[in-house]
Amino acid sequence: MKLKGRMWILNDDDINTDVIYPGKYTYELFDEREMASHALEDYDPSFAEQVEDGDIIIAGGNFGCGSSREQAVKTLKYAGVKAIIAASFARIYYRNAINQALYAIECPEASQYARDHREKLEKSEATLDLEKGTVMIGEKEFSFSPLSGKAQEIFDAGGLVPYTRKKLEK
């Protein structure tokens, strides 16, 4: 599968779940559109307004650290984000992304390159080949490990909800 999208380059490490989706909404909002309207609110208040369906986020290391709140994945998914490429992910965030079938791709080289050339590359397109494990940013291609094993199975089922539903039906 191939994916093409506009890049939002977030030039920071340790972007945490509180700035992605503030705690004050975690027991308030359940509607997808409403949740999407607060995406990255405490990091970049303009993000939710300007994000478009199909966009890709590029970030530094330890993306999604902090709380286990799954809404920090859902808010980006509902906002239209199709993939997040980071130097690394926090553990729970990574699992939550797989469980919601949102591509979380660890590729420190691509992350560094995009952040080093942020002015030129911001909002330009990146192209991902998810089977081969490559991402094209500007003129440069980078490799990452594609999903495998259990994670791939859950992803292929469309996330953990359909995956478990199928298991229960058996």
Binding site: S68, R69, I92, N96, N99, L160
Partner: peptide, 30 residues
């Protein structure tokens, strides 16, 4: 635990492992 500070229970020689909500629902079922 569906809470990131589930690691607390390591104080008792156990492994407290945090997971997300969907995963918790799946564990409730499976």
């Amino acid at each position: 635990g569906s809470d990131s500070h589930t690691t607390t229970h390591g104080a008792f020689g156990a492994a407290g492992i945090p997971i997300g909500r969907t995963e918790t629902a799946s564990v409730w079922a499976l």
